[in-house]
Write a protein that binds this DNA or RNA. Structure first.
Lengths: 203, 203
DNA sequence: TTTTATAATGAGTAAAAACTCACTCAAAAA
DNA sequence: TTTTTGAGTGAGTTTTTACTCATTATAAAA
């Protein structure tokens, strides 16, 4: 008799992992359109045929990867809707971003992937494109809300909260890209630099 | 007798312009790899054959466009090496970025194009890839130098100047991308938000 | 050793994309 | 009206890429 269900599932999971990380790496580092399926299979160390047993199209593969990234964003929205002090929430978030961007490429990859997916699906009105934009809008709103609360508490600098939220995420996105593009020449700004435009006091 | 040299040159310039702006638009909005030469010709309103009379390869077209963008960066470096007050130089620069990003897509296109070119040429060690990275490094250094001077003059907040310069450009890059992706939903942060992390005083 | 269920392969196919070239078109002046 | 010259065309060719399928490899248990 052949292998058990569990053994087969384990095998399948292992190759799916290989495919996902190869695709992530390539999509992020050279762009979706410039990455061929052959590329992905080679990087994953498997055959094209096997890749297609797991993902019906190149597009579906991108969609799955982006799906995970979008989940991450949603978790963030939830955490920002907490009742804790805005300053603490933002400070904790920035600390996480700082350590993630300092140590590994995972967060940078997620952020860039979402970006790539948005550009790649620009003309088409795919479900995914719309969903990303929508989640993004909600994230910006939740953050602006948090900033407003912080301003009322006197912890945050004054200024248009929505604009500050836009600037907040724009800078994180920019940092992610710089990290990947500049490689070892990238020097991650410390949390105090990143929050200086938000928090009062400082020095 | 046929048209004069000047008339022919005028015709050629006109089509080159059409090609350039079509290519810029498409490379920026859907990515280099996801843009076909046929796409570009169609958008420019000319035939593929004519496009290839002007640019030998799709790659060469990208290179020319990026070349202009890099020139723009170089002009910036020079302006930052001026003897004027750091605060004034930065403030003027941010004002320019603000009006450019508020009104048109030109600056955003340039910034995103450079980014795209870096990603597209990631694996290969093309001359262009190297040049962009080098110009970028010089720009960061010049800016860090300016920030240091501003700190000595007591106009700028304290903190690692290089990190602050990285954050400065990361945020601008991020804003450019947000502008293009969010379209009419994008709200450009005012100069005061953008400089709050740099300048002392302020609210 | 043989059976069996499913993972894995990669040459093969069809579609799309990059690039070519033999030809037409346009307008100025003879 | 004809000639001239370089812009402009797009069907055709070559190369690359996404995707398929007939076949092989594997390892557990009978």
């Amino acid at each position: 008799m052949p292998r058990t269900k569990e053994q087969y599932e384990e095998m399948r999971n292992a190759t799916r992992d290989k495919i996902r990380s190869a695709a992530m790496q390539l999509f992020v580092h050279q762009g979706y359109g410039s990455t061929s399926v052959q590329d992905i299979a080679d990087t994953a160390g498997i055959s094209i045929g096997l890749l297609y047993r797991h993902y019906r199209t190149k597009d579906q593969l991108l969609n799955e990867l982006v799906g995970y990234a979008v989940e991450g964003l949603k978790r963030n929205i939830r955490s920002f809707e907490s009742d804790q002090s805005p300053k603490q929430l933002i400070a904790r978030f920035i600390d996480e971003v700082y350590t993630d961007l300092s140590n590994g490429e995972e967060l940078a990859n997620l952020l860039i992937l979402i970006n790539q997916a948005l550009f790649a699906s620009a003309g088409t009105d795919s479900q995914l494109h719309e969903e990303i934009l929508q989640v993004n809008a909600r994230l910006l709103d939740a953050t602006a809300q948090l900033i407003r609360k912080g301003q009322q508490l006197g912890e945050f600098r004054l200024g248009d909260a929505k604009e500050m939220a836009v600037y907040f995420y724009a800078s994180i996105q920019g940092l992610a890209e710089m990290k990947i593009l500049l490689k070892s020449n990238f020097q991650m700004p410390s949390p105090s630099v990143m929050t200086a435009f938000l928090f009062k006091v400082g020095e």
